[in-house]
Design a binder for these strands. Sequence first.
DNA 1: ACCCAGGCATTGG
DNA 2: CCAATGCATGGG
Length: 266
Amino acid sequence: MQPTLIAPLPPGTDFVRSTFRYRRYGRDPASLWHDGRLHRVLRSGLAVRVDESGVWAWAEPAAADLAELAHLLGAGFDLDGLRAAHPEVYALAPGYRPILLADPFEALATTVTAQQISLRAACAMRARLVERFGRPVSNDAATWYAFPAQTDLAGADLDGLGLSAAKRRTLLALAGADLDFAGVDDLGIRERLLELPGIGPWTVDWFMARCLGRPDAFAPGDLGVRKAVARFAGGEPIWPADRVAEVCSGFGPHANLAVHYLLTTL
DNA sequence: ACCCAGGCATTGG
DNA sequence: CCAATGCATGGG
């Protein structure tokens, strides 16, 4: 069966640039890059693949699927606004629309695996997690996975994936946590997440930026961000987090996007 | 065989 | 309250 086009890319998207991260750190079976396309499974279970011409699916999307896709593809990012306000930053990666993760559990679990270690190592461990506990989807060219749901990991045996005992504990806590933040403001979300074992400020900052897509969110303590901002602003190798926070809050409502653009320079 | 990589919790001063 | 330490794997 042939897929049909169900949605265009948000205007101004440079698809190849926006999907760079799915080629750089290794194979990610929940965001699979194969044959020039990005493969995902939406929360409803709808399998999709994305290429330069838009989003393709093998079944009719519901309204919620289209809304999730818009969020996923970074439709909320104001590229024109960044270009107008900070042309020198926009020029680093024109058309870059960071891909977000719509599901809070996937976003948090993915971020936790990347704590401290290299993104390649995190990607390898996450691939093993996804292939053990996720639900596979196939067409004649590829197999990819829905990221495991909370219920798939509740009480699961996470040994043998390469995750530290602390990270295994955090994932199990996330699997049993209430991650429905409807009606909760950002401070309340932060407070609730920080109560969970193994969730610190860095993880919450990335959650705000990459899951909720808050325009002004960024992670000043992130090693890569500290390097990228330092090199761009002063030519020094790395800055402390507080100095990064000072400079980047100056980007105001474009900080999320601006920091993503700066990260491409690494 | 090292050393570093998109942190966090625990412990000791 | 700040500093030091262990965790875990993949790549250089």
